[in-house]
Design a binder for these strands. Structure first.
Lengths: 147, 147
DNA sequence: TCGTTTTCCATAACTGTATTATGCATCGTT
DNA sequence: AACGATGCATAATACAGTTATGGAAAACGA
């Protein structure tokens, strides 16, 4: 079974790689924007932990997004060291558009499958969620397992 | 349903990103080595198409792998323009080790799930394979859909 | 209150991964 | 023999990620 899973994972990896370099925004950027849109303004360090990248990596990502007008750095908290990152209206708009595109594409893809296949995927989703959950909780910082 | 699928895809993206920068070999490199080990020596252009990257991208990837001794460029075919890329013994060894690590990790992960969850994933694998199949066949070169 | 430690972020330096545009050698074809 | 097509390499660029380091502000401890 894990062989077949491996094939699926490798194909998904190719998919993710292509998505990461296509269109106006990278996958990392889109996911960050999505988080900010869902959860509201957050500290830079929180974002780094949440997205699973290093703090300097997050600083740079936020820098690029700020340069292009999708997010804004503010310092509104009492702590003057802290930086609060928030999505701009333009960024919010962009997230909405991309979310719709994605939902549409996924629905179209799913519609090409037989109903039994759709049902099988639907029934496996909670399990898949838990599978990934198990991995991320097992993983200690910077000790990635070799999946 | 596509919302839940999206969550799984996003989590997978984080996983892929972490795997891509961890350990001695990137995800791209491992997948290329795996292909060469499975399917034997191949032309550089074939590899680029198979892995879904541009030809210069593949040239560079092969260059890094060659520098580190995992693959070799040969020109054995009649066509003197062509480059045949083959995995070295060291590369073959490395692929085997990583494959085992991965299988072990996946099995461990699966074993943490309830049997019903495992069964659900098992039943969904063929459907997932077809889902990905549908996407890659729909996608024309450099016109990535927004999944 | 003052010194020390810790936290938060930025910067520097580096590596890798990808792209497009371009050029050169070779192959096939006419 | 010339010409177009093919195969690969290179250049230039941008993004994505890392570790190491530094500086400012906060928190803490006598």
């Amino acid at each position: 079974m894990e062989n077949e899973l491996t094939v699926v994972l490798e194909q998904l990896t190719r998919l993710v790689r292509q998505l990461a370099t296509a269109g106006e925004l990278s996958m990392s950027a889109l996911m960050l924007l999505g988080r900010l849109e869902r959860e509201g303004p957050q500290r830079l360090t929180e974002l780094a932990v949440g997205e699973g990248v290093s703090q300097p990596g997050m600083t740079q990502l936020v820098g690029r997004l700020e340069r292009d007008g999708w997010v804004r750095r503010t310092t509104s908290t009492g702590d003057r060291r802290g930086v609060l990152v928030e999505v701009t209206p333009a960024g919010r708009e962009l997230v909405g558009v991309r979310r719709n595109q994605r939902a549409e594409a996924l629905n179209h893809l799913l519609s090409t499958l037989h109903p039994e296949d759709q049902a099988a995927i639907g029934r496996a989703l909670p399990a898949l969620t838990r599978l990934i959950e198990a991995r991320t909780s097992v993983t200690t910082p910077r000790s990635t397992t070799h999946v």
